[in-house]
């Protein structure tokens, strides 16, 4: 049973070109779906649409975002916001800009628990402390009293992960959570997210451009090109035999660190032309 079910979601720049073309995908309870594609393919846009944080220049032109059986797009804004806040969370891309520089760490983890979910401050503080221990932050009491600028990027990403899991959400959107980090830290953070996800049984929508990451943490994946889902497969099937020529080329283009001699294989022009023709045919077919 899927916790999140997106059906035929279309999004466009106001008065401009489409950004998502009838996207459909499901994230099952406790499962991880990877969302891959090149820059500008619309992967982050899907996560933003789910969490209700699309930029004002963008509008949803059709489709449904069904969260736990309710289409979010039919709800009044206040109710939608409350429901998203209570059941979903975001792990943002850049830990350096995602924490408020004027607030201490503690309140930034507990704010949702106290303000939205009505916990007592004492309970929320205990919870925050336990979470920081779970993400292996040494000396959590000191960190809770710190300001973001006093902590390293890796530490801040751990805090953001802890904060995302604070209210035991049913769904977490991870928007390229390791892209802004050092390569050495990336691996630890990835392992941390995968471990937390498994322990808490949270459904995860994992936005990334790195197929290596997908193979490690995801059960399913959607491949996007120009806002269109060109392939939706189980990860094991995908790596054994990708169905769409574009996703096959994408897989082939992933550098093999174990075999540097193999060199780089960019996606061939013929494949790009073919998938562009597909998008054009979709647009001509009318929505």
């Amino acid at each position: 049973m899927s916790f999140l079910s997106i059906r035929n979601l279309s999004v466009r720049l106001k008065g401009g070109p489409p950004l998502l073309r009838r996207v459909s995908l499901d994230v099952a309870v406790g499962q991880v779906r990877g969302l891959v594609g090149e820059s500008g393919a619309g992967k982050s846009m899907i996560g933003k649409a789910v969490l209700g944080i699309l930029p004002p220049s963008v509008e949803i032109t059709g489709g449904q975002i069904v969260l736990d059986g309710t289409d979010l797009l039919t709800l009044p804004p206040k109710e939608r916001r409350r429901r998203i806040g209570a059941t979903c969370a975001l792990i943002p891309q850049d830990p350096l800009t995602a924490l408020n520089p004027s607030h201490r760490i503690g309140p930034q983890i507990t704010d949702r628990l106290v303000d939205i979910l009505g916990w007592t401050r004492a309970d929320a503080n205990t919870r925050a402390r336990a979470l920081l221990e779970e993400v292996q932050i040494p000396n959590p009491d000191r960190v809770l009293r710190s300001y973001p600028h006093e902590l390293s990027g890796g530490m801040r990403q751990r805090i953001l992960i802890a904060s995302a899991f604070a209210a035991e959400p049913k769904l977490i959107v991870a928007d390229e959570p390791t892209t802004a980090l050092d390569v050495t830290v990336q691996k630890q953070i990835l392992r941390l997210i995968a471990g937390m996800q498994a322990r808490h049984g949270t459904a995860l929508l994992f936005v990334t451009h790195d197929l290596g990451v997908v193979s490690k943490v995801c059960q399913h994946l959607s491949v996007l090109y120009a806002g269109m889902v060109v392939e939706d497969s189980a990860v094991t099937d995908f790596f054994a035999a990708p169905r769409h020529p574009y996703s096959a080329a994408l897989l082939a283009a992933t550098p093999k660190y174990t075999d540097p001699a193999a060199g780089l294989h960019p996606v061939p022009d013929a494949v790009i032309d073919a998938v562009r023709a597909e998008v054009a045919a979709f647009d001509a077919g009318g929505r």
Binding site: R81, G85, P92, D94, A98, N100, D111, D115
Partner: peptide, 25 residues
């Protein structure tokens, strides 16, 4: 900014976001 967007996903309304997250900075 990103931290304001993050606060929105937590369920805060626009007015709360302006006063709590943005104003002091």
């Amino acid at each position: 900014l990103d931290y304001v967007t993050l606060a929105r996903t937590k369920g805060y309304g626009e007015t709360r976001v302006i006063l709590r997250e943005a104003l002091r900075n």
